[in-house]
Amino acid sequence: MNINLKDALKYLLLAAVLIYPLFSFANEYFLHVMVLIMVYMVLAMGLNIVPGFCGLLDLGYVGFYGIGAYTAGLLTIHFGLSFWVIVPLAALNGAIWGILLGAPTLRLTGDYFAIVTFGFSELVVLFLTNEIWLTRGPLGLPGIDPVIIDFSWFSTLINPEWDWYWEFIGPQPYFYLGLFMVALVYVIMGRMEDSRLGRAWFAIREDSIAASSCGINLLTYKVIGFAISAAIGAVAGAFLARWTMFLSPDMFKFWESFLILCMVVLGGLGNFKGSLVGAAILIALGEVLRIILPALNLPTETRFLAYGLIMVLMMRFRPMGFFPSIATQSQKNPILIKLKKELGSS
């Protein structure tokens, strides 16, 4: 009964969030923040693969976010490609760079790998700033089209008067698109976690020598994890490009990587569901501080102190994050549920 009530409350809350943007009293700023949270939810889930599942510290995740965003931005401006074509291309580009960076450097362990990823993200920012012929450098990349759903080629075939063409204006459509993106990544993460692939990652995190003696090729599986993580980051970047319609290199500075890593740690390393909460808390906190800090006559950069303080408090009181990953409770696979019943009855 207790659980039912909890579930009911959960679904009620979800339904409330779902229909909220449709009401006339929905605040545009509030919706904007929610979309931002969703972007970071995707980033945090994607990053969780590397430090959470494989146990490798990644300090350069924002590099892939930037690669995805600029891939989407440039493809939109120069080739006018549709958002639905761009997302897979951006993911592919992210994954390619993930493999290019990961294949030689994932042989390194621990701190060395963290330093390499950090250097990579700085390189991405330097490239975006200095290759002016391609990215317009510090001037940024304005004039990216919003997301468009265009079925006019199809509808005019049926009836010349039908024009199935929608341009995304205002935060509402992005809210639902973002929600769709979060749900998609969430499902993919869940399915990867509960598979041969996910188990191989966990084995590497727990004990790499034992993992290789189980027949797991360490380098291959680390590179796969890194590439998938990069691809998810690039998808979030592509969404960002078509949502903000403007990109500049300083949107992908190092502290973004740190922020995403904080979300992952806050939610619980290795538990991608916790990352959702981590993203929501830290973005909401950032917005609150944006209002509070000027009122106190402090510069807005002071908010990094707050993030640091949160990390210190987390390390002291909840070192495993708010939702630590517990192997024994996260199994909803029907095969395992069946097995549990069989073992219980015998």
């Binding site: 993919i188 399915r191 990867m192 598979s195 041969r196 692939l197 996910g198 188990r199 191989a200 966990f202 084995a203 727990e206 004990d207 020598i209 034992a210 993992a211 003696s213 189980c214 027949g215 797991i216 796969i224 998938i228 990953s325 192997a327 024994t328 199994q331 395992l336 097995l339």
Partner: peptide, 28 residues
Amino acid sequence: RLFSALTVLDNVRIGRHCRTRSNFFGAV
């Protein structure tokens, strides 16, 4: 050397890794 944070069953399932084939696309 066990995968101590994982379940007993998962430890043995990881042992099956080298005799199984499914990949990312199969999983997703």
